[in-house]
């Protein structure tokens, strides 16, 4: 494990591991009971990227993606914990637009898409004191298996540029730092929402249960919940689903 000589606006270390089971597991396991707010654990490769459900493993060769877990102390954030994934998705989206002139959209609750293809996935774990934000961003991949559940893309495939994945961290962290303190989340997220104002059918709760919900996406709430206008005229808030 080495420390990267990169600026972290939270003023704490950015660690890098050549290979790890998952940065989330490493963050939970190897940094003690009271890690610092803003600590980053990144890796060149993950052998067991985490997620619920099978076939969701991240596809990235050595140093092809930005794979990291960022640790936040709940008491140091203004944001409700449930809104952290969409805030992280917004941070990634802004970075992709600013640095690569891409037009990303946020697929509620936790994916970033470019031209309808997944470029970034986010998964968080929350304990009584901490929230661990796991981010997988496709950077240098020049192809993806057609067997992936969701079609994927990368920064290289979209822009032709080949940035060093960990080099994106300072920009990403500075966006995250701003967004964790912002209060008007619904207004900020709205223009970035995938399929805004369109009728959608989503799975509520655990996807394996097959509970379908339909409605028009009108935005998100302060907690990050998706707001759907249903045929009955009622607004329904979704807290769990995809």
């Amino acid at each position: 494990m080495k420390q990267l000589p990169l600026p972290n606006p939270f003023g704490v270390s950015i660690f890098y591991l050549t290979e790890v089971d998952s940065t989330m597991r490493a963050a939970r396991r190897d940094f003690g009971a009271s890690p610092e707010h803003g600590l980053v654990i990144s890796a060149g490769r993950q052998s067991a990227g985490r997620g619920r459900g099978s076939g969701r493993d991240w596809q990235a060769g050595q140093d092809e993606g930005l794979l990291c877990t960022i640790v936040f102390k709940k008491e140091a954030m203004k944001a409700p914990v449930s809104s952290v994934p969409i805030r992280a998705a917004l941070a990634v989206s802004r970075l992709l637009k600013q640095q690569f002139q891409l037009s990303p959209l946020i697929k509620w609750p936790n994916d970033v898409l470019v031209e309808g293809r997944k470029i970034c996935g986010i998964l968080c774990e929350s304990t009584s004191e901490y929230v661990y934000v796991g981010i997988g961003l496709n950077v240098l991949q020049d192809e993806f298996s057609s067997e992936l559940r969701t079609p994927a893309t990368s920064i290289f495939l979209q822009s032709g540029l080949r940035p060093e994945p960990v080099g994106l961290l300072p920009g990403l962290l500075s966006e995250l730092q701003k967004l964790l303190m912002v209060v008007q989340l619904p207004m900020l997220v709205r223009p970035w929402l995938y399929r805004l104002d369109e009728e959608v059918t989503l799975l509520e709760g655990d996807p394996q249960l097959g509970r379908w919900v339909s409605g028009i996406i009108t935005g998100v709430g302060e907690s990050g919940e998706l707001r759907l206008l249903q045929k009955s005229g009622k607004i329904r808030s979704l807290y769990s689903g995809e």
């Binding site: 449930s82 609750p109 936790n110 986010i122 968080c124 304990t127 009584s128 769990s240």
Partner: peptide, 18 residues
């Protein structure tokens, strides 16, 4: 006290309930 007893998932945050 402090043991995790379940997870409640909301918006892809796995909230460990202690």
């Amino acid at each position: 006290k402090g043991d995790t007893i379940c997870i409640i998932e909301a918006m892809k945050v796995m909230n460990e309930l202690e």
